[in-house]
Design a protein around this nucleic acid. Sequence first.
DNA 1: ATACAACCTAAACCTAACTTTAGGTCAATA
DNA 2: TATTGACCTAAAGTTAGGTTTAGGTTGTAT
Lengths: 140, 140
Amino acid sequence: MTYSIGEISEMLNISISTLRYYDKEGLLPLVNRTPGNIRAFNETDIECLKMIECLKTTGMLLKDIKTFFEWCEEGDSTIEKRYELFLMQKEKTEKQIEELQKALARINYKCEFYRISKEKGTTDVPGLREELSMKFLSLK
Amino acid sequence: MTYSIGEISEMLNISISTLRYYDKEGLLPLVNRTPGNIRAFNETDIECLKMIECLKTTGMLLKDIKTFFEWCEEGDSTIEKRYELFLMQKEKTEKQIEELQKALARINYKCEFYRISKEKGTTDVPGLREELSMKFLSLK
DNA sequence: ATACAACCTAAACCTAACTTTAGGTCAATA
DNA sequence: TATTGACCTAAAGTTAGGTTTAGGTTGTAT
């Protein structure tokens, strides 16, 4: 079973031009072509793209994702490198989540601040600023 | 109490050129200058920069952060807009955290996969591929 | 007075990750 | 067979968020 670039684009919600760009950049070294030179994606390519999406979400650069795929093709001699890559990415991702949770706490406070301000019609609500705002942020 | 651009840079771990860039882009409309034209940052500027960092962490564009600051300066007539902005950003941030957690689960599996592969000296470990790898990802 | 680090601006440059454009090919349908 | 929509490449363009460069000023210590 193979899929055209348009089908893959819809399935994975990645634009056609992005798929071609990934291919050109060497991130999909295995994509077969029909005799007429049309890309025919298979399950492996799909898994590959899902891995790209996963790593991209965590902020890994395309060139580093490419390096990882190259290591995969080199075989068992690169297991150690790949292990360390994922250990590092795990750390980074955990830190990113922490950072986002801190930011979310701040944003949640702002939601509350503006909910009350909206109710009162002004950001100068006695008690609100002193008790909450100052704790996080003097900027309204 | 005021601070030089170099002091702020160290305090907040933002490069001097980035601070000047933010100022140029109008994200710090309130920064005072000495008679000799040297920037003198105050507590409000620091809070402003912390807010920028917070919103940037959640993926907000600098131009949208700027818009938010402009709304702040316009006063109580923009409370509603600001409230909606933060409600939206809250949603987005929660989704980002979810996405990162999904990615982390995948990465954690890869760590385990490579830990075992490293131990065995090969990624062709009977049982590993069938029981775990296929569940997530055929790519090694 | 002079050296020297820290500051200033404007403008050019950079990188990642795409997207768009231009010009052409392929394959199924009327 | 002619059209049409989906595909192809190469190359140029875009955007965000900076950094670097070049040339000049400020302020403090010797």
